[in-house]
Design a protein around this nucleic acid. Structure first.
Lengths: 227, 227
DNA sequence: AATTAATTAGAACGAACGTTCGAACTGAAT
DNA sequence: ATTCAGTTCGAACGTTCGTTCTAATTAATT
């Protein structure tokens, strides 16, 4: 009976070992992923070689293949963990409020806090968006789609509550652009921490989106430039 | 007297030829650059090989080196032409108005129109931002800085005229993020043309930035969330 | 202590990389 | 007709790529 791989599936802990060695296994695996994230962040996925990753992580070339199976799978694991984490944090935090505007604020703050705390991983996630092929790529794409749809839902809830008529898709994509572009310019000495940044970006974005609120008397800008 | 290169500087037209052959030279060079832009756009700078570029452009490997000298110089020429063009178009268009809000609108429209008309080049410019090293990279960086400073100037003019107090740096960077992120999501069938997009993005951004205008009665959103 | 599985290491694989070379070719100027 | 710079080409350079192989070493289980 032929087996596709001579070893067990890479990245899985060994069968029937002690909990101690399981823990060591996962810790080692996480360390390597951390170093790999740094290298991918600095040199890009295509620009980083397996030898770069080997050197940075202190694990031999053969060791990397023993643990991860391929370069592509390494990127996949980084992206999956990063995206899964930010998505899970978001879901938890969204339980804090039912108020539409506040929920959008939570979304922005969650995204920026995680982005700045885990800048390398989020850059790899944003910048190497098209690097994964076939199955691995579509799995990440599915998480992204869920993340997008949550944000779209928040936006439409806001529209409904305030009787606004802006285009939710453009708004969500613009918001993602504002936030994901950060890795190209953020400087902690100048731009403050995540809370301050989320406050400023949230003000710009939400005031912009809500400027058509009928409860507001101010229609000048929109009216003047219609068509 | 030693010469650094056995040939003339690559990418320059030959000396003392007829205008006809000069024109042919430039046309050929432009065609290759166009095909190279497509390949860089699709596979990324590191992911695209000189053989890919050769195949796509119909010019032999050695021919590419005769014209361009190196892979890096090819990317450099693409980025420089793209950036120089959008910058020059902007300067021309800005002469159309003295009114600060209108000038910001012009900036947005110019950026988006050129971005969508020349999507591949702009993606290569945005996405391969860190690919060029040393001299070539800093030359592109200088153009980028000028482009940024113009936008910052427009924003500060707007602030002065309307007595606003938002952070201009965050605003400019957010605006760039909104606009440059487009290449990851734009779909002409859904999202309309550049004018429509510039209208919607401009509304979101400008209403957001101007929500602190003392001439407006609406301070709700800002006031509630201060600190 | 013996056995077995998991992990590491070094060397090597063929393929592809960016780049160079020398010779052939072209077309206008002598 | 000859010259000569500009152009094009196939072939090859040395290096590095992602990956695999085999054997040695370690750690856990019997």
């Amino acid at each position: 009976m032929p087996r596709v791989s001579p070893n067990r599936a890479p990245g899985r802990p060994p069968r029937g070992h002690s909990p101690a060695s399981d823990a060591r296994f996962h810790r080692r695996l996480g360390e390597v992923l951390g170093h790999a994230t740094e290298v991918f962040c600095e040199k890009g996925y295509e620009g980083a070689s397996m030898r770069d990753l080997s050197r940075a992580s202190g694990m031999s070339l053969a060791g990397l293949y023993h643990y991860f199976g391929s370069k592509e799978r390494l990127l996949y694991l980084i992206q999956k963990e990063t995206f899964t984490t930010i998505l899970q944090k978001l879901k938890t935090r969204l339980e804090e409020s039912d108020e539409p505007e506040q929920r959008v604020r939570i979304f922005i703050l969650n995204h920026l806090e995680y982005f700045l705390a885990n800048q390398e991983g989020m850059k790899v996630l944003s910048h190497e968006d098209e690097a994964l092929k076939n199955g691995l790529g579509s799995e990440i794409a599915a998480i992204k789609r869920e993340y997008y749809r949550i944000c779209l839902g928040l936006m439409e809830a806001l529209k409904r509550e305030r009787h606004l008529d802006f285009d939710a898709r453009t708004a969500v994509m613009s918001l993602f652009g504002m936030m994901n572009w950060i890795y190209t310019w953020y400087n902690p000495r100048v731009d403050g921490n995540a809370r301050e940044l989320a406050q400023r970006m949230g003000d710009i974005f939400l005031s912009g989106v809500m400027s058509g609120d009928p409860r507001s008397t101010r229609r000048r800008s929109r009216a003047r430039h219609k068509l």
